[in-house]
Design a protein around this nucleic acid. Structure first.
Lengths: 106, 106
DNA sequence: ATAGAATACATCATATCACGAGGTATTGTA
DNA sequence: TACAATACCTCGTGATATGATGTATTCTAT
């Protein structure tokens, strides 16, 4: 998948992955794998960014002697997903323009 | 519109804008305006990139004493659009994941 | 006549961001 | 006893959209 095409959707994917229940880095990557692949370096960059933007909160939990940082979505995070869905309508119009121009030759 | 969301689609928009008939910078911006807004600096950067990638060719034409650089799509340019449409199927699956996670709460 | 908008091109510096490479540490498995 | 899996993190790099800025001509309204 083209890197550029992933931009703008990756943030929202991560938010979507933690929306129904809190999750942690390693698990998020595995959960998203069927849909979109992202490396650990990418994910932790995104998580940090989303935390700074107050779209999620973090709480560390000890699990089997190892530390896990659980991420919890905030109201702003949920709003981000909703805004994204609105913007998606515009994106679909653009896509239709591209697809139409590709089919017809006048 | 979110900048990041435009990445990966802008190139293809420009290609789509010149696909049915050759066009030039200023005209491309006007033609795309109803769908997506891009500045001149952005467009000329993209045009240069697409030319380097051999997805389009350029021929300069004098028009009313002014120079116009007409851009013509190549086979590789057309292939780029087709590849994009294939990648779009993946993007739609990702979008559905995001939208689904946004609707249901289990 | 003349100022300003429109047409038409271009470059440069900047900020954002995905990712590979590399690092630390523990637990499970072959 | 090595290696994979789990689980976290940082840094440098490359790609790229954009504002600011510049050049030059033609059209239009005052």
């Amino acid at each position: 998948m083209d890197i550029q095409l992933k931009r703008g959707i990756l943030d929202v994917c991560v938010l979507a992955a933690i929306k129904s229940k809190d999750s942690y880095g390693y698990r998020i990557i595995k959960d998203l794998k069927p849909y979109i692949e992202l490396s650990e370096s990418t994910l932790y960059t995104i998580l940090k960014r989303l935390e700074t933007a107050k779209m999620l909160t973090v709480h560390t939990v000890e699990h089997d002697g190892r530390l896990r940082k659980y991420y919890h979505i905030t109201g702003e995070g949920i709003k981000r997903i909703e805004d994204f869905k609105e913007e998606w309508k515009e994106i679909m119009l653009i896509y239709k323009f591209v697809a139409k121009e590709d089919d017809t030759n006048e």
